[in-house]
Design a protein around this nucleic acid. Structure first.
Lengths: 342, 342
DNA sequence: GCAAGACACTTAATCGTTTTCGTGTTGTTG
DNA sequence: CAACAACACGAAAACGATTAAGTGTCTTGC
């Protein structure tokens, strides 16, 4: 019973012309008569004709789809990134195919292949924490399909990148603790490999060094999964040391909120006895009591910028410019949001 | 410089046969010789041949893509739903094209058309709060493309639906407040139209009625945007009434957390002087102090179930079964999670 | 020794669209 | 009135894959 989609053929048949004519009429070719164009356009509108996107993809080798791989979607930050991308892509007539790596390299590889096979016009990626080797992305550069990395990137991969200045943000956060009078500052860091965990750790160290404070490895804890629970557990550990810290810089707000909770449970007053700074400016930080001081990480802008760079590359490439990938890094600003936890 | 994708033609040329033979060999047609099959398969593997998904879509009228429209992605609940869908879809070889309505009907219409035009094999929808008229989804039933609604559905639309029992959940929540000794229970409800806001309100009323308590319209506030801020503002209003409520059932956790904050700012002790129940079991509820009592809404399962129903319909349809849409409703269970706020 | 089958492949049409290269009809010009 | 534009449209190939319907060649049976 179901109708079938209206094609050029259908319009052509009803008008007694050929599909060629219809196609040309709709695209305002100069060799189609005024009247015919009129009639074709009217009928096309009336039948709500829409060209078949897969036929177009096949013919034009252009899908108007870009893929994105993110580690996780149930994170406020990535949700914001996606929104930023979508708004920018939609404006330019692109669809977004979202896939998840689940912080898992194997899954990441699967998704890269899927998107490659799906002939996306470009790819946006934030690497899984686990990922060390980025060879699976080489197929994109091999086939000169534009690729932009954001947030968690591989420094050495030849493509454009959109980042925040993690080191600087971490420096600001740690320095804020120092300015607020902290003398023993702990850092609950992210996993070993992702660049941003490394750089936040470095920012932490730099701030200490700049203030002539000693770096004490015992005050640095390393998360695996970067969760509330880890923040909670590490903070309990830290606070039951002989000389507990009076400040904690946590790698994310999730972890910081875990720290906050641990402090509460141990009756350590925040911010009096312990000051805590998070990173990311996720929603929880505003809601939690005391409200969390944090570093604002502009998710929406990161997404929008990455999408913009990607589209530029795509359009440049389709204009036939011999595609030379410059490995530009765009670094977006972060800033401190001071709340009650410091 | 960029390579081009390997096609059947390429393989055929290298082996001195026709594309037809290659295609058949790869699909183990009986009329291709054993040796040829061997050679074809080996070369295909070596060249990492992948069939062009758009060519397939064109030929088979099957895209292996399903679309989803959700109001918002930066909500924990919807993020969970998406994850549930993805896991189920991926297992069955489908891709998921995610679009956002932003709780805006106009945008919703745009996305429906986009997905229709993109020839998705099926559609998953949660309606925008604003949406009253669902005619824009008729094109899917007209062309017998499977459609499943979830969470925010149109009762009357002829399709399968995956829901929670909002009325029952709200009843449980309100009843819990009654059992905990509340005598004046307020409700901060959702907007006017979405079914779940209506039903939660009804559940609230039913619980009151069952307990022989009066329904007092002054104790019911209606959100527009369903935000923390609204929860905060309405609760301030409620608590400064001559006879303030001693219990609040909020339509979502976001709103409930706003209520919690308002109570704190007015020095109203929770749960002693005011008990609060939310709805959804979002992350914030666990983190906030006092931790929020709430109704668990199984996002992941909703997504997974909706995806499963959709796939069943798609496969049934492609098996040629004359597609008769039964408007089944699948209702998933909710349950109360009691925490410190009651 | 010759028809009938089995075997192993190829031809051609198809999906919906685009685009190059015709082709037939007008109208203008010398 | 022959020659030639200008005009308005059609035929055909192409994108990559699938599949029904051929087409040769070699066995086999009687």
């Amino acid at each position: 019973m179901s109708k079938h989609r209206v094609t050029l053929k259908d319009i052509a048949a009803q008008l007694g012309v050929t599909p060629t004519t219809v196609s040309k009429a709709l695209k305002d070719y100069p060799d189609i008569g005024k009247e015919t164009k009129q009639k074709v356009k009217e009928l096309a509108k009336a039948l709500n004709y829409q060209p078949d996107s897969h036929a177009l993809a096949l013919k034009n080798k252009k899908t108007n789809t870009v893929g994105v791989i993110i580690p996780e979607i149930a994170h406020f930050f990535f949700a914001k990134v996606i929104k930023g991308m979508m708004s920018h892509l939609e404006e330019n007539g692109y669809r977004l195919l979202i896939t998840l790596s689940g912080e898992n390299t194997e899954q990441e590889i699967k998704q890269v292949n899927l998107l490659f096979n799906n002939k996306v016009d470009g790819l946006l990626v934030s690497l899984a924490n686990e990922t060390q080797n980025t060879d699976h992305f080489k197929q994109f550069t091999d086939y000169s399909i534009p690729l932009v990395m954001f947030d968690k990137v591989d420094e050495w991969f030849p493509c454009k990148k959109v980042l925040i200045h993690d080191k600087k943000g971490a420096f600001t956060a740690t320095n804020h603790l120092i300015e607020r009078g902290c003398k023993r500052i702990a850092h609950i860091r992210g996993p070993k490999y992702p660049l941003n965990a490394i750089q936040r750790h470095e920012g932490y160290m730099n701030a200490l060094a700049t203030a002539n404070m000693d770096y004490n490895p015992d005050l640095v804890k390393q998360c695996e999964a970067v969760t509330f629970e880890e923040g909670y557990a590490f903070t309990k550990e830290l606070l039951t040391m002989d000389q507990p810290p009076d400040g904690i810089f946590a790698v994310t707000d999730q972890v910081a909120v875990g720290a906050l909770q641990a402090a509460k449970d141990l009756n350590v007053e925040v911010p009096e006895a312990l000051k805590i700074v998070g990173f990311s400016d996720s929603q929880v930080g505003q809601i939690v009591k005391p409200a969390l001081t944090t570093i604002h990480q502009p998710g929406y802008e990161i997404g929008a910028t990455a999408a913009q760079l990607l589209i530029e590359e795509i359009e440049l490439k389709s204009k036939g410019a011999e595609h030379i990938t410059e490995s530009t890094q765009i670094i977006l600003d972060t800033y401190l949001i001071q709340r009650e936890s410091t």
